[in-house]
Design a binder for these strands. Structure first.
Lengths: 337, 337
DNA sequence: TCTTGGCACTCAGGACTTTCGAGTGCCAAG
DNA sequence: CTTGGCACTCGAAAGTCCTGAGTGCCAAGA
């Protein structure tokens, strides 16, 4: 009951902060959203939310601002992807219509996506060289240290060392080896990633999750020679404040396509739109940016990924909807071609 | 005599302002450059220079800053392109060495140029207009689906997909391939088009006609899809001040390749390095940016242009030297390839 | 005629202070 | 658990003062 309202407060804070770009206080909150309670009550809720780490205040006696953790909760539980309007769909369709070749499709997609979201859009070119997974080997160096070896059909081998929090028995190891191989062997990289993610429910801290993570990472490393298209960099001009801290590293990342691929790569699960918020990624410098991405490809095979990069303070529902919609249309387009 | 010193003063102002990024006053000027006269004398000269529109003061009682007209004079009369050092030359050579194809050459050039100048670099892909047809390849994807590949002497490749109304046998395909290549190979685009048209009488609906149509389209389309590569956008972060007024429009221009082509296009005279300063171009929004560009291509034919875009307050001699050097090396590289 | 030292004047920018008000935390009563 | 009241905090905006780099002009000197 109070719990529910507290979440409503968090949602309201996120929405307000995203639209106004200013810390939001208790009074403004009850006015702009019909919360039906007094500011004092909201303040109590805020205190709890801050205690739990979902919001923070830039300085004493200013409004509250969502933390990365707050955005995460918002994205995971407080929002459903709202469908695009019919007009928007038509716009997407006509925008992509008339594309003559693959380059053109990618080019149009990246422009479309950046215009819809008013963010920097990134579209990975569909993989043409489809190397497949030949075998995954797991070697226990010590009970809690695992060597993960990924062998690809091209003959290339990637290795990763994984530290486990809990030790694995030989039997468990064998099971895991079988599970992983069954999911990945014979698949092209992109689908292997999806299959792994699906086969292994992400349980935090569990050994299996750690292994899968390292595998996925090794796979996305392997794709480093793939190409990406970037568009909408002009939207960076809207960042306004926090220029040096946010825009500069982002501009650099945009030129380093390898980094972009990694950012997107984390998100290549099929179907759903993945969101990486702020510090959640491996790049310190991009702590104040989020990535919204999803896989795309004909017949729901995730051949490649597309998405946007923007400030953590962004309109997640709208952005996610746009990313999903574009991915769908591009996929359908590739299906027909 | 005094005229001469006045120009020396202008040169000193430009050099100081470029390096310090701050308005320069009479006292600092005589100290940093051995002008051999008193500040008062310099002030008199400055008054004249301001009268003539070469410099201006941001506000009363601050130092002077060069105007566009001042930069223009500086570039035209007060500077000679200083040669690159041997080390720099070697760096350029090794940087470009090992490029595998045209895309690679362009990609390396744009990175090289942006790193040398610490500005945003723009490299136009060699134009089709003057290039000749090296080879035409026809690949049957299905009996009625044909991939037409046009390979040009510049290394550029154009592809078109052709749907045939009537299927072709392998023999017919071989014949057609030979026919087309005999007509077009070695010819300049323009003559290749006519040769093809003559060699293949246009019979409506026939497969051969469809193939030729797509070839001709690929060849004559060149105007619309002249491509450019952009690099070093991260250098925009150094703009610091004047963010909204300068960076935003520039970011927008960088996405609009047509605009970039126009900017470069003005500069495609052979040999010399062309400089457009501030307002001199057609784009109001880019009034505080300059373009330094030159043509490049094998055997001094200007196949395309390359250059950089940066703030009017830039190191013109160094930048011009870098642009010229890169253009030379790329040209030589294309010559050998 | 050009150069130079002297001198009064200007004014942006930094340092400092004051004020204002949005917003908070806490408490006692409902 | 909610709410009104109240004292408190502190960043941002506005105001004030001051400094010093830099100027323009003038009269004397070369």
């Amino acid at each position: 009951m109070q719990e529910e309202r507290r979440l409503a407060v968090l949602r309201a804070i996120v929405e307000d902060y995203v639209s106004t770009e200013e810390p939001v206080g208790s009074k403004a909150l009850v006015e702009r959203h019909g919360l039906g309670v007094s500011p004092a009550t909201v303040r109590n809720d805020m205190a709890v939310l801050e205690e739990e780490g979902f919001i923070t205040q830039p300085h004493t006696s200013a409004g509250r601002v969502p933390t990365d953790k707050g955005y995460r909760l918002f994205v995971d539980r407080l929002t459903t992807v709202k469908p695009m309007s019919a007009a928007e769909r038509r716009a997407i369709a006509t925008f992509l219509d008339g594309a003559v070749d693959l380059d053109d499709v990618v080019g149009r997609s990246v422009r479309l996506l950046s215009q819809l979201t008013r963010q920097v859009a990134v579209v990975q070119y569909p993989t043409l060289t489809r190397s497949t997974v030949r075998h995954v080997e797991l070697v226990a160096l010590t009970p809690s240290k695992l060597l993960v070896v990924l062998i690809l059909s091209t003959g290339r081998v990637e290795q990763r060392l994984v530290e486990l929090e809990t030790a694995l028995t030989d039997d468990e190891l064998a099971d895991l080896r079988q599970l992983v191989n069954r999911a990945a062997t014979g698949e092209i990289i992109a689908t292997a990633v999806t299959a792994l993610r699906e086969a292994v429910p992400p349980v935090d801290g569990h050994a299996v999750a750690a292994v899968v993570d390292s595998l996925v990472e090794a796979m996305s490393d392997h794709r480093s020679d793939e190409r990406v298209a970037v568009g909408g960099a002009a939207n960076l001009a809207r960042y306004g404040d926090s220029f040096d801290s946010a825009v500069r590293p982002l501009l650099e990342a945009l030129e380093e396509h390898v980094i972009l691929l990694k950012l997107l790569g984390e998100a290549s699960t099929g179907g759903a739109v993945t969101v990486r918020i702020g510090h959640e990624g491996p790049y310190q410098e991009l702590a104040s940016t989020s990535v919204v991405a999803t896989g795309y490809g004909p017949r729901d095979e995730a051949l490649a990924t597309l998405g946007i990069v923007g400030p953590t303070r962004m309109d997640y529902p709208g952005t996610m909807a746009a990313v999903r919609a574009v991915a769908r249309y591009v996929s359908r387009f590739l299906d027909e071609g």
